[in-house]
Design a protein around this nucleic acid. Structure first.
Lengths: 157, 157
DNA sequence: TATTGTTATACTCTATAACTATA
DNA sequence: TATAGTTATAGAGTATAACAATA
C-alpha cells in the first residue's frame, strides 16, 4: 500500500481523499450544469429551502444554510432581481421579510431536480443498481455519523 | 422519494449530493487537522508530489496539480520560507528551478500520512472492514470513470 | 519566437464592524 | 437591551497581463 521510497500511501487508496476528490468533481459538475439555467449553487440552496418552507426570513435561511446573514442580503438581492423570490412583509415581525418563491421559481424547481438526477446518473454510471443502492446507504451512514445535517452542504459557507 | 408538495427529491437521497457534502466535510477536517502542523492542503499537495518525484520545476508542479504557475510562485515562496523546500539550480534548464524537499519536510511526511489515516478512520468508523473495502472499490471506480487523475484534487485550483 | 519564473493590477469574495428600524 | 436587515470597509484570494532571462 505505501510507496517504499517515501512511506506515504497513494492518495487514490484513501477513502477520505476519494470522497473529497469526487465531491469536488461533483460540485463542479453541478455548478456547470446549473450555469445554463443562470443560477448558482448557493441560490439553488435558497430556492430548495424555500420550496420546503416558503416565507422564511433571511435570518432563518442564513441559519439553516450555514451562511452569514450579510451574505444572504446580496443572495436574496440577486434572486429578487431575477424575479425568483419576493421580499414580502413578515406577518409576525416588522423588522424581517418573508422571502417567498415566485411562480417563475416554482417553474424552475423541476429543472433543478432534473440537473441533480442527471448528474447522479452520470457519476454512478459504472455501478449496478445494487451497488448504487449500497453506496447510497453507506454514504448516508457516514454523513449521519459525521454529524452532518441532512441536505445542508458545508461547502456553501 | 420526492416530496409530494414540491416534486423535489430530498438531497440526502442523492448520491451526488452526499458525495459533495461528505467531500466538503472531509476537506474541512483535513484542513483542520493539518493546521497544528502549520501547513495547508495546497502545500501538502506540493510536498507529496515532490516526495514522489523530487526536483520538479514549478511548471511541472503547476501542471501536475492543476494550479496556475503564478500561484505556484507564492506557494513555493511560503514553503521555502518555512524551510520545507529549496529552489536549486535546474540541471537541464537555467530558466527553471529544481524544487527539492528539505530534511525537515521529509521528517514531516509521516505526519501528513498519519493525518490522512486518522481522518479516514474517523470518517469510516461506522463501517465494517468489508463495507469499507467495498466503499473504497466503488469510489475508485467512480473516480476513474469520471476521468479524474489519481491523486489529483480538482478543488485545489 | 516560445517558455520559466516573477511581478503588478484589477477583480471577486469574505469577514468584521457599525448603522436603522423594530422587538 | 437585543435582533433583522443593511451597508461600508478592509483583507484574502484569483485571474490577467506583462516583464526579464533563457530556450
Amino acid at each position: 500500500m505505501a510507496d517504499e521510497s517515501t512511506g506515504v500511501s497513494a492518495l487514490d487508496q484513501r477513502i477520505g481523499f476519494l470522497l473529497s476528490q469526487l465531491g469536488a468533481h461533483v460540485a463542479d459538475g453541478f455548478k456547470n450544469r446549473l450555469a445554463p439555467l443562470g443560477i448558482q449553487p448557493r441560490a439553488t440552496a435558497v430556492l430548495l429551502s424555500l420550496a420546503a418552507a416558503d416565507g422564511q426570513s433571511q435570518r432563518e435561511l442564513s441559519e439553516r444554510l450555514g451562511l452569514h446573514r450579510n451574505v444572504m442580503v446580496s443572495l436574496i438581492d440577486a434572486l429578487e432581481s431575477e424575479g425568483l423570490v419576493e421580499r414580502r412583509t413578515h406577518p409576525e415581525d416588522r423588522r424581517a421579510f418573508a422571502v417567498s418563491l415566485t411562480d417563475k421559481a416554482r417553474g424552475l424547481l423541476p429543472d433543478l431536480d432534473r440537473v441533480g438526477r442527471e448528474l447522479e446518473d452520470d457519476v454512478t454510471a459504472p455501478l449496478s443498481a445494487e451497488e448504487r443502492a449500497a453506496l447510497l446507504r453507506a454514504l448516508q451512514r457516514l454523513s449521519a455519523a459525521a454529524g452532518l445535517i441532512p441536505g445542508v452542504h458545508p461547502g456553501l459557507a
